[in-house]
Design a protein around this nucleic acid. Structure first.
Length: 641
RNA sequence: GCCGGAGUAGCUCAGGUGGUAGAGCAGCGCUCUUGUAAAGCGCAGGCCGUCGGUUCGAGUCCGACCUCCGGCUCCA
């Protein structure tokens, strides 16, 4: 048979040759380095028979190599756990972005914690040094079911039964593949590296609960996470990267830089300290000025409403469990979890003409959502949420144009911070309102908007809001979690529920369409993301303390104070370190607090009316006249650099 | 909400098998008056998350609850 190598050169092999044969034919070194083989875009076992055509030998250099050995490592983990914990049931164990995991159901009363890792890792090492071969066999489904049932591996039985059930009737599933390494056999699609020894470095990282099949109504399994690499150095680098990431965790920086605090007395509700409030206020003023520029008008609405409003809006039916209610004088009131019903009230307050549309109402909307206790996370997931919310009321004809404006606005905002979120288009869910024509139109409008502007996005089918499709902007935090920032949602439903109307040119009543839109998402989350994005080293315009004056000794205090005062008058946030500490210490502390400018003043500066400017991280910039420094700083702020 | 782990001074952390708490940094006081990442000495600081139980005696053992951490489900 004939195969072609990536460089185009042909290779003649005997009939039934495998990837391993091909590698050996090319060279003994490649044969040793080979982990798998790729044909027609599929990764396959090295000892699987080849097909005619192009072939690629996968080695450690291949981007898929990590995926392979992490998958191997998951099997080795299960091997070790099966030996150490008789009676354990195994479910699934895939490779993931940073490593792998395996989900187990341990026998009653057995709890696994990270203290058990050493023992498990030890057992894993034994199986790795034995270099157990991954051997694939394809067996009839009945046989596989029999086998796993006899072993009491109910999850495997369920997996196979589902495979059969979900198969395309034209191609029923007749066999499944099993992979055996040493004493352990697992239901597995493969592929695997030739042997366990290819796992050069691994480490178990954490244990956690995980629902079987991701379904909260089903069994909670124990998930063991780990990671694996092709060399010890890679593993060490990975551990280092994790530590660096932890250093920019917004919860740590929030405390160290005195940005916000959290209290047991109001879980999920940040207290913004003076430093954090400065950042908040800068964002507010950016928000306010850009909203005005783009034709929005700002409104303010209550946070507490009669429950009738929530019944009318549909929130009572679908969102009640996440809302806070209180009773006053026999009347049930609910804290708003969203601002849309409030803005609908404002829309309804006046008679509207088609000439008025689009009406764009913006609000720093304070909403409360009772987020499940286990989901709270610093300022990224809170119960007290201040959205940079807006609702655009427009005609159907205006919908596409308005959606585009919203997205464009979002990008403008993200650009100010150098953020590059991923976009997701979510389409009609199963449970929805409105006609198919409406959905067709709304989805097409959003999609056209994205594509016309050459925006890349992932399609998230069936994940839209019950009233309309949406485009979300997502961003990843320091520890790899993904968060939704902005959202643009088209809505035909709310105007219906609230009987919103406008008089058209035809003098008849028409129903407007609504766009719900938040760009930062919430100030809380956005600031959290910014803290991590900048690792606490904010650009000058956001920095809570923009400059700190550091007198060399007490006799320079007066000049220090006067300099600070003059810079404050120019509009800068400036402090003075008045303590009788050494200049070294004052500098060190200002550096640790990531203050952008340190202004050292001693005899020389006092005499010439200057400041010895030190930039955070960059060091001494030399002396500058006070006025000149002020000018430069103000320019830097204006440019939002 | 679910599974697992944790809660000791403002912060970071020590306190085998029960005998009424300790360090560094921060804070305060004194000395030093300093030129670009930590001067020295001293002092003060804790209902050991909350409530209940076991015990002569609980930071340590048991239970419940609260909060936090890592995941899962859910979400801006």
């Amino acid at each position: 048979m004939k195969v072609t190598l990536p460089d185009g050169s042909p290779l003649e092999l005997p009939e039934g040759a495998t990837g391993a044969d091909a590698a050996r034919a090319i060279g003994e070194g490649l044969a040793r380095a080979a982990l798998g083989v790729r044909q027609n875009g599929d990764l396959r076992d090295l000892d699987a028979p080849l097909e005619e055509g192009p072939v690629e030998i996968v080695t450690a250099k291949d981007p898929d190599a990590l995926w392979l050995i992490r998958h191997d490592a998951a099997h080795v983990l299960a091997t070790a756990v099966m030996e150490l914990y008789p009676g354990v049931k195994i479910s699934i164990g895939p490779p993931i972005a940073d490593g792998f995991y395996y989900d187990f159901e341990f026998p009653d009363g057995v709890k696994v914690s990270d203290e058990d890792f050493e023992r498990i890792e030890q057992k894993m090492r034994e199986h790795i040094s034995a270099d157990e071969h991954f051997e694939r066999t394809d067996v009839p489904v009945e046989e596989a079911i029999e086998r796993f049932r006899a072993e009491g591996q109910d999850y495997k039985v369920e997996l196979i039964e589902d495979l059969i059930r979900d198969a395309d009737p034209a191609h029923p599933v007749e066999t499944v593949s099993l992979y055996r390494n040493g004493p352990f056999t697992d239901l597995c699609r493969g592929p695997h590296a030739p042997g366990t020894r290819r796992i050069k470095a691994f480490k178990l990282t954490s244990v956690a609960g995980a629902y079987w099949r991701g379904d909260a109504a089903r069994q909670m399994l124990t998930r063991i996470y780990g990671t694996a690499f092709l060399s010890k150095e890679q593993l060490e680098e990975h551990v280092e990267r994790l530590e660096e990431a932890r250093a920019r965790d917004h919860r740590k920086l929030g405390r160290e830089l005195s940005l916000f605090m959290l209290s047991d007395l109001s879980p999920g509700s940040p207290f913004w300290l003076p430093n954090g409030t400065h950042i908040w206020n800068e964002l507010t003023s950016l928000w306010r000025s850009t909203n005005v520029e783009r034709g929005y008008t700002e409104v303010r609405t209550p946070i507490l409403y009669d429950v009738d409003l929530w019944k009318r809006s549909g929130h009572w039916d679908v969102y009640r469990d996440n809302m806070y209610f209180t009773e006053v004088e026999g009347r049930t009131m609910g804290l708003k979890p969203m601002n849309c019903p409030a803005h609908c009230q404002i829309y309804k307050h006046e008679q509207r003409s088609y000439r008025d549309l689009p009406i764009r109402l913006a609000e720093q909307g304070l909403v409360h959502r009772h987020e499940p206790s286990g989901t709270l996370h610093g300022v990224l997931r809170v119960r007290h949420i201040t959205q940079d919310d807006a609702h655009v009321f427009c005609t159907e004809d205006q919908l596409e144009e308005e959606a585009l404006r919203c997205l464009d606005f979002g990008f403008y905002i993200y650009e100010q911070f150098g953020l590059k979120p991923r976009l997701e288009l979510s389409t009609r869910p199963e449970k929805r309102v409105g006609t198919d024509e409406m959905w067709d139109k709304a989805e097409a409008a959003l999609q056209r908007t994205l594509e016309k502007n050459g925006l890349e996005y992932d399609l998230n089918e069936g994940d839209g809001a019950f009233y309309g499709p949406k485009v979300d902007a997502h961003i990843t935090d320091a520890i790899g979690r993904s968060w939704q920032l902005g959202t643009v949602q088209l809505d035909y439903y709310m105007p219906e529920r609230f009987e919103l109307a406008y008089t058209g040119a035809d003098n008849a009543e028409h129903r407007p369409v609504m766009i719900h839109r938040a760009l930062m998402g919430s100030f809380e989350r956005f600031i959290g993301i910014l803290i991590e994005h900048y690792a606490g080293e904010f650009p000058l315009w956001l920095a809570p303390v923009q400059a700190i004056v550091l007198p060399i000794s007490d006799r320079h205090l007066d000049y220090a104070r006067r300099s600070a005062e003059s810079l404050r008058e120019a509009g800068l946030r400036v402090q003075v370190d008045e303590r009788s500490e050494s200049i070294k210490k004052k500098i060190r502390e200002a550096e640790v607090l990531k203050v952008p400018y340190m202004l050292v003043v001693g005899d020389a500066e006092q005499e010439s009316g200057a400041l010895a400017v030190r930039r955070h991280r960059e060091g001494d910039q030399g002396a500058q006249p006070l006025a000149e420094f002020g000018e430069r700083a103000l320019h830097e702020i204006a440019d939002r650099r």
